[in-house]
Design a protein around this nucleic acid. Structure first.
Lengths: 309, 309
DNA sequence: CTCAGCGGGAGGTCCCCTCAC
DNA sequence: GTGAGGGGACCTCCCGCTGAG
């Protein structure tokens, strides 16, 4: 997973140069990469989330325009019929909870929850055998268990059927919040997708042994995707969302908002020292003005190589 | 326009609390508001742009996976057939220029270009009459021209037909880059949308006079949407895109990247002074380390009210 | 067995129309 | 001018099936 989850900068650059996207397009592209490639969300899930965002924008305008369907329709080039359906859908959500398709926190539930549910449903003590297939000698069991890498969680090795059922269960659980109308059945295609994601991310490995005629599956990681990188990607998305929010206050010209961009060139040898100094500078500035029970503030900053001019 | 282009914070808050979106969803929502409500893009244009972004993400993975259609399909839960079509579409774009639907720079061309094209095609000298309708006495002309607000650009007042033709021309021009296959005809619905946008933003006003039996249209602004706010919205989108890019380098743990968030509380009376000091602090830090011909760097920062914890 | 291709259903984006208030 | 209907075309996201290798 690690080597693929990195976006190759040269390919990204190549694409961006050819398409010449606007800044808004670049945000969408970066967001798609973050959520789909790194986060493991489905293609359709990303599109649904974008649609939901646009629906919310329409709804907010609908309210501002005095609940005028026609005006809202003209503003965004949407049919009155559709506006009405969107408004109804959103008000249903406001009234009785989630029915809009959004990107669930961080990553799809059926991926992140798998290690926990596996260990919960198929635990395995240190001295218990991990393989529970009938008709194997202790030696044959050990041969299969020897294929597990170091540090694998204590969990039973499952056969094809058990593994499929586990995924199916996870998929069911992940949809409990959704209204009955728009639940996706756990189709073969979806099952293959989830399986592939788990194997590709090296959360699970497949063991093919000549001793058994069906493939076996073993949990080899405590969590989906490398922990450090996942945490950083999540922090990145969070930072961008908050930064976006700050800048909106700046656009509205509210009081107590500062926004700035400093463009400069630097001696590469002094770069790290400069960044360290900056870090310290900002920290001490925040400390200097911090006062308990005061007005809640946040300062965000990022510095690095300048790519767009 | 000015009062509507502001996103009402309380409604935004209400929606966000009810939906409980992930940070990625909030970015999408803010982006939808910025491009659609403030930027004037169509609903469908935003969805198309989001789809394009997801297609690019798929394509980049396709390349990384050694051009393996099936693997890519499994990773994102997309049919091989569809992958193939997407790859073909993107490679056509890479080879022979734009064919993907993106959000054109800043705002839709048919809106921002209108004031310029109007003044270009229907200029009007200071001493020339702005109304060129047959059968009006000079006094009647003056009565109509008196309805124009102060500071209106020097341009002729158009009748219904001329105005429609102008919009149609603008729409044609805005599509010259697109391949023939996916050009939208200037339908009645689209025409109404564009007209409504122009009237709503107070770029154009409609004049109904009992002296003439058809409605007249007058250009009353040099540019679509308030200039200052539009500039700030554009800067915001640009900032967010660049900030996103910086953080991706941070996620990859590249050298020479600094990322930080400072959370603190402040005495409201000292807030402005603190922000002024911070601004000066960062400026002098950048000046201190600036060196011509050095390594290109950028520092971005934003500070304001803390809303999400 | 895998793998490519084909058909179908559901739903959404577009377009246009009429009729009552 | 607004709301509430009707219609149809087209595309895309999903699914399942078949037949060649």
């Amino acid at each position: 997973m690690t080597h693929q989850s990195q976006v190759p900068p040269q390919l990204r650059q190549h694409l961006l140069e050819a398409i010449h996207p606007s800044p808004a397009d670049r945000i969408l592209f970066d967001l798609a990469l973050s959520t789909m490639k790194m986060g493991g969300h489905r293609y359709g899930a990303f599109l649904d989330a974008a649609t939901t965002a646009a629906k919310l924008a329409i709804y907010s305008t609908f309210i501002e325009q005095g609940e005028n369907i026609r005006k809202t329709g003209f503003l965004y080039h949407v049919e009155p019929k559709r506006i009405k359906a969107i408004v109804k859908e959103i008000e249903a959500t406001l009234a009785e909870g989630q029915s809009l398709k959004v990107l669930n926190s961080k990553e799809p539930y059926y991926l992140i929850a798998l290690p926990f549910l596996w260990q919960d449903k198929f635990p395995c003590g240190d001295d218990q055998p991990r393989v529970r297939i009938q008709g194997l000698t202790p030696g044959e069991r050990k041969a299969i268990e020897a294929k597990l890498p170091e540090g694998s969680p204590n969990a039973r090795i499952l056969d094809q059927v058990e593994f499929n059922e586990l995924i199916e269960l996870l998929h069911e659980v992940s949809q409990t919040d959704l209204p009955k109308g728009q639940r996706m059945p756990c189709s073969d295609a979806l099952m293959s997708h989830i399986k592939f994601r788990l194997l590709h991310s090296e959360t699970v490995i497949q063991i093919d042994s000549p001793l058994v005629d069906i493939p076996l599956f073993a949990l080899v990681s405590e969590s989906y995707s490398p922990k450090g990188e996942r945490a950083r990607v999540f922090a990145m998305i969070d930072d961008v969302a908050r930064y976006f929010n700050l800048l909106q206050a700046w656009v509205r010209e509210e009081e107590g908002v500062l926004r700035g961009v400093e463009v400069f060139d630097i001696d590469p040898d002094r770069r790290q020292a400069a960044l360290d100094e900056l870090d310290e500078l900002l920290r001490s500035w925040a400390d200097k003005y911090h006062q308990d029970q005061g007005f809640p503030m946040v300062l965000q900053f990022a510095a690095g190589t300048r790519e767009y001019d």
